[in-house]
Design a protein around this nucleic acid. Structure first.
Length: 547
RNA sequence: GCGCCCGUAGCUCAACCGGAUAGAGCAACUGCCUUCUAAGCAGUAGGUUACAGGUUCGAGUCCUGUCGGGCGUACCA
C-alpha cells in the first residue's frame, strides 16, 4: 500500500510540477488513528524548495491524486500540511483474501532474498556454563537470524571460540587441582582458579576414568581437553534448550594453522600500519583517529585477541558472505572499530560488517542488583533460570527491550507465571483462538464447502477492520525488524495484534452467528492465529493451543 | 582525565531513525463472567521527555555544555 501511495503522489507531483526533481516520499503510519491509516509529509519537505505554503502544496497534491481504484476511502490535508490517507474497506477485504491465500508463509518477505549472511554470536569461551549474562547475546543473535531468514536471507549461525589462551590454562589447572584433591592429595587451589562446582564434577569424571594414574602427570592437556569437551556439551545443551542451534563452531586456532594471522600482519605491514617497539608489535590505530596505538603481538610473542579477531573477520568475508553480523556486549564497543579499520586496510569492504551492540543486563534478585563472575562461581546459569521460568519466558525477557537500552532482568518477575508476565498475553491470544476453532469445527460444517470463498465484506465492524489492518502490517514489521535488527519490534507488534484480537473477542462472536458471518470470522481468526504463531516462531517462543 | 552507550509516568520500557495531542505493561482506583478461555475487556489517575542553550516550518529524537548511571580506557579475553 505504501508503495502504491508513493506512486500516486509521484504522479500527482509530475502533473503539478513537471520540472521538479522528485523528492524521497516517506509514508508513515500516524500515531493517532484520527490521522488516518497512512500519512505523508512531502508537502512539508517541499515547502522550502517551492517557497510556498505547505498546506497549499498538500492540497494541490491531494487534488491531483488519481484515486479511481477505490483503494482509498479518503485523502485529507491536515495539521501543518500532512496528507492523511484512509484505506477503503474493500481494499482491506481484498488484501485479507490474499493473506488467506498465502497461508502459513504469510510474513515472509524478499528484502534479503538470496543474500548470504553470517551471524556470529554467543562465542563464549568454554570456561564454564552459560550464565544469564550470556543470555541476551544468545537470544538476540538467534532471533536476529530468524528475522533475517523470514526476510529471505540464507543465514549461518556461528560460534567463535578460543581454547588455547591463559583462561583455558587456568581452567585446566583448576580441574587438576580438584582431581588431586579428590585423590586425597593436599593441594592449594590456584589463586585465580575457577571455583564452580562443575569443575569438581569434571575432575571426578577424570578420576573415575583414569584412577590415580594422572597424579604425577605434569601435562595439563588431558585436563584441558576433558574440561573443554564437557563444558562445550553443556553449553550446547543449554542453547538447544533455548531453541538455539548453531550451524558452525569456529576455532580460533584455525587462523594460526592456515596462516591467516601472518597474512594479516603482512598486509598491514605493507600499508605501513605496523611497527615494532620494545619487542612488541603495534598497530597504528592512531591513524584511524584513536588516541593510542594498540598492541597486536605482546613482547612475549603471544598475540592479543585483536589480531585473530581481524583475521577471523577477513576469513568470514573470504567465505563469500554478503553480510557478516557480530553480536557484542557493550564491553566490546571500543575494540571493534580497530577490527573494522584493519579489515578495510587489508582491502575488504567494511560495509559488509554489521555490529550489533547491546547494553548489559542487570540481574535483579530479591529486589537488588546482582553482580556475577564466572570465575568466582557467583552466577545464575541459564539452565537454572530456565528450570524456574521456562525457555519461553527466558527468551521473551531478553527480547522485549531494545538492544540499546540497559535491560533489567528481574528473576522473581520472570518466574511468576501469573498475569504480570507479558509473554502470556501473546500466548493466551493464540490459545484462545485455537479453543474457539475447536468449537467452531464441531458446530459448523465448513470443510464440505472448502471451495467457497468467505465473504469478507461482512467484516466491516470496527474491531474487525482494525484487526485486518494490524494483520496487513506484519510483512512490514518483519522488514523493519530485519533492517534495524531490533527484535523487540516484533514483540511490540504482536502485542498490538493480540490487543486487537482480544477486543474482537469481546465485541464479536462466532458461535451462534449465521453461516456466512461465522465463516468470514473464522477465516479472520485463522489468519490472526497464523500471524501470532509466525511471530512467536520468529521469537523462538512456543504458540500453545491450550493454556 | 579521555572515549562510547544510556537518562521518557511511582517501577520496567515504547515511540516506525526529524513529524501532528509522547504511548504500553506493572503498581493504584472504578466497572464487566448463567453465552466461543476473566492469563481478558472498558474506564480513571499519573509527564516541563535529567537540566540549560542552539539548529528549523517542527526536537524525546540532531548540535554544544552541565549533572547522574553503565562500559571501556592493559603487552587481560
Amino acid at each position: 500500500m505504501h508503495d502504491y501511495l508513493k506512486e500516486l503522489i509521484q504522479q500527482a507531483l509530475r502533473k503539478i510540477h513537471p520540472d521538479l526533481e522528485l523528492p524521497d516520499i516517506i509514508i508513515e503510519k500516524p500515531r493517532t488513528p484520527e490521522h488516518g491509516d497512512a500519512a505523508t509529509n512531502v508537502a512539508l519537505t517541499l515547502a522550502n524548495k517551492l517557497k510556498d505554503n505547505p498546506r497549499k502544496i498538500a492540497q494541490e497534491i491531494a487534488d491531483s491524486m488519481d484515486t479511481h481504484t477505490g483503494y482509498l476511502k479518503s485523502v485529507e490535508v491536515a495539521g501543518p500540511g500532512f496528507i492523511n490517507f484512509r484505506f477503503s474497506d474493500s481494499w482491506l477485504f481484498t488484501k485479507l483474501a490474499e493473506v488467506r491465500q498465502a497461508g502459513k508463509s504469510f510474513g515472509k518477505t524478499r528484502l534479503f532474498e538470496n543474500r548470504n549472511i553470517l551471524v556470529e554470536f554467543v562465542s563464549a569461551n568454554p570456561t564454564g556454563p552459560l550464565t544469564v549474562g550470556h543470555g541476551r547475546n544468545a537470544v538476540l543473535g538467534d532471533t536476529i537470524s530468524r528475522v533475517l531468514e523470514w526476510a529471505g536471507a540464507n543465514v549461518q549461525r556461528e560460534y567463535y571460540f578460543n581454547n588455547a589462551g591463559r583462561q583455558m590454562r587456568i581452567l585446566a589447572e583448576s580441574v587438576r587441582t580438584r582431581y588431586l584433591q579428590s585423590l586425597g592429595i593436599k593441594r592449594e587451589f590456584p589463586e585465580e582458579g575457577y571455583e564452580g562446582a562443575y569443575i569438581t564434577d569434571i575432575a571426578l569424571k577424570i578420576r573415575d576414568e583414569h584412577g590415580d594414574h594422572l597424579a604425577g602427570d605434569k601435562d595439563l592437556d588431558l585436563f584441558r581437553e576433558t574440561a573443554e569437551k564437557n563444558i562445550f556439551e553443556d553449553i550446547q545443551r543449554t542453547l538447544n534448550r533455548m531453541n538455539i542451534f548453531m550451524d558452525t563452531f569456529f576455532n580460533e586456532n584455525l587462523l594460526y594453522e592456515d596462516g591467516s594471522i601472518n597474512k594479516v600482519l603482512e598486509k598491514l605491514r605493507k600499508q605501513n600500519l605496523i611497527y615494532e617497539q620494545e619487542d612488541a608489535t603495534w598497530f597504528r590505530t592512531t591513524s584511524f583517529g584513536k588516541e593510542k596505538d594498540t598492541v597486536l603481538i605482546k613482547s612475549s610473542g603471544e598475540p592479543t585477541y585483536r589480531l585473530p579477531d581481524i583475521a577471523y573477520h577477513i576469513n568470514k568475508l573470504e567465505r563469500g558472505f554478503d553480510l557478516v553480523i557480530d553480536v557484542f556486549g557493550a564491553d566490546h564497543i571500543a575494540t571493534y572499530p580497530d577490527v573494522v579499520s584493519a579489515v578495510e586496510a587489508c582491502g575488504y569492504d567494511r560495509d559488509k560488517i554489521d555490529v550489533i551492540v547491546y547494553q548489559f543486563v542487570t540481574i535483579v534478585k530479591d529486589g537488588k542488583p546482582f553482580k556475577m563472575s564466572t570465575r568466582k562461581a557467583n552466577f545464575v546459569t541459564l539452565d537454572e533460570l530456565m528450570d524456574e521460568a521456562g525457555a519461553d519466558v527466558t527468551r521473551f525477557f531478553f527480547l522485549m527491550r531494545s538492544p540499546g537500552t540497559h535491560l533489567e532482568f528481574d528473576i522473581e518477575e520472570a518466574k511468576q507465571a501469573g498475569e504480570k508476565n507479558p509473554v502470556y498475553y501473546l500466548q493466551y491470544a493464540h490459545a484462545r483462538i485455537q479453543s474457539i476453532m475447536k468449537k467452531v469445527r464441531k458446530t459448523y460444517d465448513f470443510e464440505t464447502r472448502a471451495n467457497r470463498n468467505p465473504d469478507f465484506s461482512l467484516l466491516s465492524g470496527n474491531a474487525e477492520t482494525t484487526m485486518i489492518k494490524r494483520i496487513l502490517e506484519f510483512p512490514d514489521v518483519i522488514n523493519q525488524t530485519a533492517i534495524h535488527k531490533e527484535p523487540h519490534k516484533v514483540i511490540n507488534y504482536l502485542n498490538e495484534l493480540a490487543t486487537s484480537f482480544h477486543k474482537f473477542y469481546h465485541d464479536c462472536r462466532i458461535l451462534g452467528e449465521n453461516d456466512d458471518l461465522a465463516l468470514a470470522r473464522t477465516e479472520l481468526l485463522t489468519v490472526t492465529s497464523t500471524v501470532l504463531s509466525n511471530g512467536l516462531k520468529i521469537l523462538g517462543i512456543s504458540a500453545p493451543d491450550k493454556m
